[in-house]
């Protein structure tokens, strides 16, 4: 038995739990019905710990740790729901809402958006920082899909599903920090992409209205993410 498969015992929100050594804090939380909010994480894709919504407190650690990329350890004492964490999560969501132009009322994903529903669950009633109101591009050059950078939160789910599952690597990230943005191929129009197979996986895993199917109007773009765990499971099985 490898070290990673050894059983670890730990405490999460005051409850005793056991987990395999190769499990993450997020996995063990979800197994125990403990809700930890996530945006960049998606079951079936490699975790990147980018959105910071899943930060948790681990006793003895000198900083907060992302639950999606942190493996459980023997004797860990984890808290997922302190007032401090809730405050940080609200601030992160408000920064997302202020950074680009998330006009929920006229968005294709109104009613289906993970940013929108997490904001409501976090009790966000207004954004305390000023909105940036910067202009972003809308790329409707693809025959089937639209990429609206105004709604993008740089979670990179599309980048990962395209590379890890579809194997096309059409999407990537250009620039750093607040200048970072999604590009297709060598920063060409999506419609001109040679690598895109038009499979639509990126659209279905996108948590907001940034990627959508052409022809969808306001509040019509529901996403179907269910395919992903099955697809990766079957792929691993036949490897």
């Amino acid at each position: 038995m490898s070290v990673l498969q050894e059983v670890k015992t730990l405490t999460i929100n005051g409850r005793e739990a056991s987990a395999r050594g190769d499990e993450t804090i997020l996995e063990i939380a979800r197994e125990h019905g403990i809700f930890v909010p996530t945006l960049c994480h998606l079951h079936g894709l490699s975790p990147v710990g980018g959105c910071r919504l899943c930060l948790v407190e681990v006793e003895g650690a000198n900083r907060l740790l992302p639950a999606c990329t942190t493996r459980v350890g023997e004797g860990m004492v984890i808290r997922t729901d302190s007032d401090r964490l809730k405050g940080y999560r609200r601030m992160i969501l408000e920064l997302f809402l202020s950074e680009r132009n998330h006009t929920c009322s006229v968005c294709v994903s109104n009613g289906y958006c993970e940013l929108q529903s997490l904001s409501r669950d976090a009790g966000i009633t207004h954004v305390r920082v000023p909105y940036r109101y910067q202009r972003y591009t809308v790329d409707a050059s693809h025959e089937l899909f639209v990429a609206d950078q105004n709604r993008c939160i740089m979670c990179t789910r599309c980048v990962r599903v395209c590379e890890e599952v579809e194997g096309a690597h059409t999407w990537d990230v250009q620039g750093r920090g607040i200048e970072a943005r999604l590009i297709s191929d060598m920063n060409e129009s999506w419609g001109d992409s040679d690598s895109c197979t038009s499979c639509g996986k990126c659209v279905q895993v996108c948590p907001t209205g940034a990627l959508s199917e052409k022809g969808k109007s306001v509040a019509e773009m529901s996403k179907r993410k269910q395919f992903l765990p099955y697809l990766t499971l079957m792929r691993d099985k036949w490897k």
């Binding site: 809402l97 132009n101 006009t103 009322s105 006229v106 207004h126 909105y131 109101y133 202009r135």
Partner: peptide
């Protein structure tokens, strides 16, 4: 009371800020 998205977020009227 800030009532509705325009009062709370700027919403559609604020789209002209671009």
């Amino acid at each position: 009371v800030s009532l509705g998205d325009c009062a709370v977020t700027g919403n559609v009227p604020a789209m002209r800020n671009l």
